[in-house]
Design a protein around this nucleic acid. Structure first.
Length: 270
DNA sequence: AGGTCGACCTGGCAGC
DNA sequence: TGCTGCCAGGTCGACC
């Protein structure tokens, strides 16, 4: 499910309600989402811990405790962190009881997600190797111009590469390229300076706009209150094969790149 | 070394 | 109604 805007939405909401709370109990319904630790170990590590902060890195959620340790959560395709009443649906895999009497439910239909307990975030390869944050100082036009020089992969594939830039997934890669008027098939090193500029501007603009609309709910994504994101209404090409391009009226096309669907308008993007 | 592809899972949907 | 095949927002490791 969630790409940067969806994860950011969850993080901002959770921050308001779980910081300062203590985990009083943990119910593990399916431990396949828990990495490296047994059920007993996982509970022992987290029970009694008080949440100090909730932050995001790439598409990952970092819950820090006042004891200098962390719970790293990656929602992958279908993970959800829902705060409120205890849930008991078939997707519910782990439930944390909190000191205010509410619960933090981890739901995950496909079980791809990760719950990782650690005392050192650098031991998590995903965090250690993630590329620059799109809103960070390190990600800018000059960085893009330099990074594309040696890359032959289609620019769509490059946008999905988390080593290049953190947080973009399959929906926003198509949306960013449509707004930047760049063909998803264009080899990265062939981007002109102007195109690099448009790519930078639209990456930042699309992600920020989606955060304002609380993300995109294609299928499974829900925020921490179980609500859908409203950026769905602003999607221009993703999952719109055969429909009219909202800019020019031509038909939106779908192709497969590196095994993943790409949607684009051949008239608007070259 | 850079790039591609299957594996990890469950479930919804279209077509027969 | 069932069955089959395809598709789904991500990441990694094995391969070429």
């Amino acid at each position: 499910m969630p790409e940067l805007p969806e994860v950011e939405t969850v993080v901002r909401d959770l921050k308001k309600v779980i910081v300062g709370q203590t985990i009083t109990a943990i119910d593990i319904i399916d431990n396949r989402v828990i990495k490296d630790l047994s059920n007993t170990q996982f509970k022992r590590k987290l029970k009694g811990k008080t949440v100090q902060s909730v932050t995001r890195r790439a598409k990952g959620i970092i819950i820090a405790f006042d004891s200098d340790d962390y719970l790293f959560v990656h929602l992958k395709m279908t993970g959800q962190l829902i705060y409120g009443a205890k849930q008991n649906i078939k997707e519910t895999k782990v439930v944390f009881s909190l000191s205010d009497g509410n619960y933090l439910n981890y739901n995950d239909q496909r079980l791809f997600g990760w719950l990782i307990y650690t005392t050192d975030l650098d031991t998590i390869g995903y965090i250690k190797t993630a590329g620059p944050e799109p809103f960070g100082r390190d990600f800018n036009c000059a960085f893009i111009r330099e990074a594309i020089k040696t890359r032959k992969v289609p620019v769509k594939t490059l946008l999905l590469n988390q080593f290049f830039v953190a947080g973009i997934g399959n929906i926003y890669a198509s949306e960013i390229l449509h707004r930047a008027q760049i063909s998803p098939m264009k080899p990265s090193f062939r981007l002109s300076d102007i195109e690099c500029e448009r790519l930078y501007d639209q990456t930042v603009d699309v992600l920020k706009e989606s955060i304002r609309y609380r993300g995109t709910s294609m299928r499974n994504y829900r925020d921490s209150k179980g609500r859908r994101g409203r950026f769905m209404n602003r999607i221009r090409v993703y999952n719109r094969e055969g429909k009219d391009c909202l800019s020019c009226g031509d038909k939106v096309k779908r192709i497969v790149q590196s095994g993943r669907s790409t949607f684009y308008c051949a008239s608007c993007q070259d």
